[in-house]
Design a protein around this nucleic acid. Structure first.
Lengths: 350, 350
DNA sequence: GATCGTCTTGGTAACGGTATCGCAAGCGAA
DNA sequence: TTCGCTTGCGATACCGTTACCAAGACGATC
């Protein structure tokens, strides 16, 4: 196949009968172009199907039109075959793409292991190769000062998803404490008094917030939080299984469980069967995140919905506009969560 | 924050006391560089932490070090909040990243709606902006001649994932017919004779293959395929629910169901409860794909595992090497599938 | 009517690499 | 010894775009 030469800005300039510079101005919505010239250039662009080269824009100009997202890579012993499904990537892609497309931006992902001792090198290499205009961090990277300091040293703006901490960069998050409180109140309202909580990974910043929301909701009703009902967890399926097995051994087992991740909730669900517990008959279960798959579990899970796509879209927007304005603002952006009641919660059996 | 100037190839050249060109040769593993000079340059690269700029490499050279993956975007009426989770993206990212990283490549995703009438424009725009060295297509794009023709016209090499068809580009796939046969034989071996099949979306090329594998396995045992047991489907959860509801109404309902996607299998699982059918006691269920979440369903699903990450890694490898060698080969690459027996299958109740 | 902005456009130098060619040194064969 | 070829490295043009500066047009001001 004859490789045809790509259409460049020169072709457009020739077609429209203006200089390169004027075409560039039209593309970049620059001021000081008369309506007539502008129309002629746009016509030429459409006619030729011209799309500017990202690489050349980055090289010539001060922007790269690239947003880089760092996600946690969690390698397992068995390798990728059984690794934890990362629903974030899918939803982030979807949420970020639309917003990026509006401004001619692209988003790309980089997986880095938060426990690697080469973490900083990996991050720096990605930055050097791509020169992104902005960076999106997901938990637990959002609160990793090794990364945020590095970004800051590189003069980059970045958004920290799921982090409430007051630090460099835009914090884009939901109110984890309120969400946990809301979920807990739902269980309390159903009549549950013996409610257990399977905690999130301690390295994640939202974990203490969620715990606090849980305990405060219970105490607000004049009830006490049984320390044995607070199970440790790390967001994984296995942690959910282990937690319920521990809870079932208690003299007075709980009638409801709030899990700090979908995956742990599925683990709880799975462990319930062998223990002879039906859900929601004997045990109510509520989960956190509401990634697409938990709607399809049996029974479908009642869940807090974390607005991952919306958070990513907001982050992209902030970064793109922040870059355009040359700001280095770091403020907070609180996004609303949803609470979706499905089949996994019911009043306790009396 | 003072934006520090990035380290360029010039800095390395100065540090090592050689010309730019020699540094470039070392980076690109070019020939004709003495070991001593090579070592000196590598030392300088490491010392300065130099990483070449992708944009500049693309602009100056003939490669962009970019692999572009086109995934199907399936917008729903309700928007992204309830859209079908696309487990492919996550697994593709994971499978492709490692391979790309080995060769200094990056992979990025583009979501395009296969039913959009602007599909070709969207694809062309992405190609023009990014100038990728290779493209990965996922179903149903893998067999969309609008896209493959366009890629061919652009002189690009590409891999078609999950497509067996003999056409332009590398076909990287698993043996869907054998997989369906294997799954069906598993059910037959357990003693099932009344086995239903929930078909895949008719637009997808693997759907007829899987159907054929299913029917041939049954007929090989001297049994007949009951046409009423062949339910239509489109890979969605709802299709699985509908299919089982239809099947349950039959005078002689099946004792086992093979579903052509995880999501449909979860739908079957969900519909079973209200119908008074326990899994696997009254009904065995087998699914296709084995995306990470089905391992966590209740009961955990017996499934064909489609090697999405491995297919993507292979595709990336083929594209990178094909680009390097300037080949335009189009051949077939068959990858093995796994069959994972879990809790959703058992002998039929007698 | 000359002077002075302001608006609009064009020319040119980067940006950071690679491709291509040139050139000197080394080496075997005539 | 000379020729010709290979090897090892440097110099330079160029990729496609934007940043920066200059220049012409035009209207307003004095």
């Amino acid at each position: 196949m004859q490789k045809k030469r790509a259409i460049t800005i020169k072709d457009v300039a020739a077609e429209a009968g203006v200089s390169l510079q004027t075409v560039s101005r039209v593309i970049n919505k620059g001021p000081n172009v008369t309506a007539g010239v502008q129309a002629r250039v746009r016509l030429a662009i459409d006619k030729l199907g011209y799309v500017p080269s990202l690489a050349a824009r980055r090289l010539g100009g001060s922007r790269s039109y690239l947003i880089l997202a760092f996600n946690d890579e969690r390698p397992t012993l068995e390798g990728w075959q059984s690794r934890r499904g990362n629903d974030w990537v899918d939803q982030m892609l979807y949420g970020g793409m639309l917003k990026c497309a509006e401004h001619g931006y692209r988003m790309l992902f980089e997986l880095v292991d938060s426990h690697s001792d080469q973490l900083e090198g990996q991050v720096q290499a990605a930055l050097s190769a791509l020169h992104p205009d902005g960076v999106i961090l997901t938990p637990p990277h959002s609160d990793d000062t090794r990364i945020t300091d590095l970004l800051h040293r590189n003069g980059l703006i970045f958004a920290r998803l799921g982090s409430h901490r007051d630090a460099e960069g835009f914090a884009v998050y939901m109110d984890d404490e309120a969400a946990a409180r809301r979920a807990t109140e739902h269980l309390l309202d159903l009549g549950h008094t013996r409610i257990a909580y399977v905690q999130g990974h301690p390295e994640y910043a939202m974990s203490p917030d969620r715990l606090h929301g849980f305990t405060s909701a219970i105490e607000a009703r004049g009830l006490k939080v049984d320390p044995a009902y607070l199970q440790p967890g790390d967001f994984t399926y296995e942690a959910g299984v282990d937690a319920l097995n521990m809870l079932a051994k208690l003299e007075v087992p709980p009638t409801a469980v709030l899990a700090s991740s979908d995956e742990m909730a599925l683990g709880v669900l799975h462990a319930a069967g062998p223990l002879g517990l039906s859900v929601p008959g004997d045990l109510s279960v509520v989960s956190f995140d509401d990634t697409p798959t938990v709607r399809m579990s049996v029974p479908a899970l009642t869940a807090i919905r974390q607005p991952i796509a919306a958070m990513t879209a907001r982050a992209a927007e902030l970064l793109i506009q922040g870059k355009a304005r040359g700001e280095v603002a770091n403020d907070h952006h609180l996004l609303p969560f949803d609470f979706v009641v499905r089949e996994s919660t019911a009043p306790p059996r009396r």
